[in-house]
Structure formats: structure tokens, C-alpha cells
Design a protein around this nucleic acid. Structure first.
Lengths: 239, 239
DNA sequence: CGCTTCGTTGAAACACGTCAATAAGCGTGG
DNA sequence: CCACGCTTATTGACGTGTTTCAACGAAGCG
């Protein structure tokens, strides 16, 4: 049985919030949670909304409550690379810097819980537990980023697409067995997938049809993917 | 004037150590530094030494005092990707995990200051300042990793090689002006550069000779590089 | 029902990889 | 100091996976 704080102590906003358990808010004392809830607000953004621009002033942090946020970096001539995907209950924002160094936008419809940067920064100074949670998430993201660097640098197009599908499959059902089946909606358009994998739209499309022709996946309505054997998909992911 | 702790309070080992100023040790109280120094030891490793294997037990952390450490990940068929380079005074090791998830090896001759994992983990729990430093370094590494993802995913071979040279140039002289000249030794072999850029040795070599033919760089003894104008090099790096 | 966006498919171009030979650097020992 | 062998780097010719360019199809939306 989980020892939970008495519900009466928990702000309404936070009662059923995932971030209070698995996210950074879990590190806060009831009093702190209350203080933070007073200045935070939930907001729903629709697909495509720009949440933060590259090199713009960042004055809020957020928790992702649902949906997927993509972190993007661009070269001057317009080439883009998605450098991270944030799922619930990930924390969004770069502590200790006042400028964003990448742009964040809603890959799907998302709902966020946003806080003024200053309030969180203050708590960060007062509450080591919060900083600890943040360190753990940051280390997790660093691990993921480095893992993806292998995909970007050393995998072939077929392997890249398989790796991407596996990533989404695992994220949409973290507890699924290694050799189970899976079904999920792709949170990204073909263009986004291409930007995430360092490929072109056309190559992504070709690899998807190839996986479909080989009966590794089925696709309905362009977005819904069914995988009968994750193991068979994993066998094509290179690692 | 820097307010420094009286030298008498500082362990001999640490007196002239860069990590005490710019590295994580700067967060420690004199007493903690002393305690840590008792269980730490300096060691010199020659080029090529394996410092930590993928999926092996990690029981020490280290500070890089000099030289360059490369962090590598491999696919099952032997393809390799360097996912990070650590320079002095970077901290080496993955807190909160007992297994390494990548291999670390000495790209050049390196000297390290190593500590038992348990001792640092204890201090981490007691000293929020240490965890803060670690969070800042981790965030810095995450920024760098994501920046490099753009290089891996979206840049051409000529741009990749130019980006690499810029990275090394900036790291060997962080204060150099944007349009200054630079001269440095490459800390990596061509094979390592290829593994860092997601290219083959041959392509790296060709791009280097092309930069040389275009008089952007000069190379002596395969390792020593001279750049007359960093701006001209940067113009070829894509961003 | 047309318009627009998104995805698929094909043919051709090209950047990078592969394979193979040569050259250069470097430590070792005569 | 040069000869030798070994490793590392360069260069060339060729092959191919991915991109590019272009046309077409499908789905969403006013």
C-alpha cells in the first residue's frame, strides 16, 4: 500500500495528477505543493502549437500531463532535427538558463501544468528533494539522448524506422512484454518522424510500407499501427 | 579577488586541482573535501585504456584532470558511435545506477582522480551543493548531446568534419575569439573521429584533405591542426 | 465538392560507403 | 642513423542507400 499524503492536504489541481507520483512534484512537501498550485495553471494546447521558441525568453516551466511535446533544433537553412520527445509526466524547461536553446512544440494535442519560472527556481534553492528529482530526470534524458545518437549516427534507414516504432510502442505501454503484440497511434506526422530520424519523408514512408509488406506491422488511417510481434520488430532495429 | 579557502585546509591532492574550482569538487566543504581526498587517488592511464565497460559494474567515479575520455556505445554487429567526449574537469560516472550503460576509454593519455562510488553517493545525499553541481554538469552534457544530434542527423559530411574541428578548437582554447586563429592537436584518431561523426574513416580523411586543399586548415604529422580563421571554418559547419 | 494537407510511389542523381592499393608516420632494434 | 615492420592515414575506382524531384492518391475540412 502506498503511503499517501492525506488528500485534504493536496491541492485540487494536483489530486489526480501523474506528476505528483512519477514526476518532479512528488518531491514537494504538502505546503510547497500548495504554494506552487496557487501559481500554476493547467492548459490544453492543440497539435502544432509552439510552446517555446529557440533563443526566446523562457519564463515558465511545465509538466506534461498528456500528449507528446517535441524538442526541435534547426540549422540556419531550415534543416530540422527533433532532439527529444517529452511524454507525461516529464518536466519541461531548462533550469539555470533564461533563454531557451531549442524550440518546443506540441506534436499532438497536449495538456500542460505550467508554473512561473521564478517560483520553481526559488523552490529549487530551498528543496534539495526537488533538485534530486530533476537530476534523475535529466540523467534519464541524457541516457536517452545518447542512445538516440547511436540511431542517428550508425543505423540504416530501415533500422531507424524500426527503432522509432519500438520507442513509441514501449512508451505507449511501458509494461508490455518483450515479445508481446502492441497497438498504438503514432504521435508524429511523417515529417516529424523524418526530423526525428534524420531522414526524408519519402524514405520514412518507403520503410513503413516495406515493414507493412513484410507483415511486421499494419497501418490504418496513416496513424494507427499494430505490431503482432515486438520481437520481430526489434530484430530489425539493429541493436 | 577570489575568496578561497585557506590552503592549509585543502588536501595536498586537491591544492592545484582544476576540479576544485570549475568541477564538482568546488561544491564541497573543506571537511568533505578532506574526507573525499582520503579515499581518492590520482591515476594516469595511457591512450586506449578501457576505463569502464558497457553493462559492467561501476564502482568508481572520476574527475578528468587532463586528456580526453570518449564515451562509446556499440551495436551488436560492432558498429560504434562515440556519444560524448569528456574533457577536464568533467565528472565521469552515472549516479544512481550501478551498471554502466556505455563504455568509457582513454582517447588520449589521461589522468583521473577516482573515488569509490559509495563515498560520493553518501556525500550526494548529505550535500545538496554537490548534487546541484552535478545537475548543472548533466544539463550541460544534455545540451551538448542534443546539439550533436543535429550534427549527426542533419549535417553533410563536410559540415560534420568542420563541426568537429570547431568543437576541438573551442575546447582547446575556450576563450578564443570567434574569428581568431587556432592551433591544436586532435585528441582522436581518424577512426574515432569517424565514430563520433557517424562516418567512415575514408570520408573523414577526404573531407580533411578537402579542407586542406581549400586552405581552411593545415595539418602536420596527422594530428596537429592549424586554423587561420575560425570564422572561415565555422562558415562550413552548417549552422 | 473542390481545396489543401499529408502520405505514397517512381525514376534519376548523388553523397557516402566499400573495397583495394599506396603512402606516411612511428617505434624498435640492428 | 637507417632498415624494418606495424599501424594509421590517404587516395582511387566503383557500388549503393538515401535523397531529390515529380507525379499521384488519400484523407480531412470548409
Amino acid at each position: 500500500m502506498r503511503q499517501d499524503v492525506h488528500v485534504a492536504d493536496v491541492p485540487v489541481l494536483c489530486v489526480s495528477c501523474e506528476a505528483r507520483h512519477r514526476g518532479v512534484c512528488g518531491a514537494l512537501e504538502p505546503a510547497q505543493l500548495l504554494a506552487l498550485a496557487k501559481v500554476s495553471h493547467k492548459q490544453n494546447m492543440s497539435e502544432g502549437t509552439e510552446l517555446a521558441g529557440d533563443a526566446t525568453r523562457a519564463d515558465t516551466y511545465s509538466n506534461v500531463l498528456s500528449g507528446v511535446v517535441k524538442l526541435t533544433k534547426s540549422l540556419s537553412d531550415g534543416r530540422q532535427q527533433i532532439v527529444g520527445l517529452q511524454f507525461a509526466p516529464d518536466f519541461l524547461g531548462r533550469p539555470f538558463k533564461s533563454e531557451n536553446e531549442m524550440s518546443a512544440s506540441a506534436a499532438t494535442d497536449v495538456s500542460l501544468c505550467s508554473f512561473p519560472k521564478s517560483a520553481v527556481d526559488r523552490m529549487l534553492r530551498e528543496s534539495p528533494g526537488l533538485e534530486h528529482r530533476l537530476l534523475e530526470q535529466t540523467l534519464k534524458e541524457l541516457d536517452e539522448a545518447r542512445l538516440w545518437m547511436v540511431t542517428l549516427g550508425r543505423k540504416t534507414a530501415p533500422e531507424k524506422v524500426a527503432s522509432f516504432l519500438l520507442l513509441i510502442a514501449r512508451n505507449s505501454n511501458p509494461t508490455a512484454a518483450r515479445d508481446a503484440a502492441a497497438a498504438f497511434d503514432l504521435p508524429l506526422t511523417r515529417a516529424d518522424i523524418a526530423d526525428f530520424l534524420g531522414l526524408t519523408i519519402e524514405t520514412v514512408s518507403r520503410q513503413l510500407t516495406r515493414l507493412r509488406a513484410d507483415r511486421v506491422i499494419r497501418i490504418e488511417n496513416n496513424r494507427h499501427v499494430t505490431v503482432d510481434s515486438l520481437a520481430r520488430l526489434a530484430a530489425r532495429s539493429g541493436d
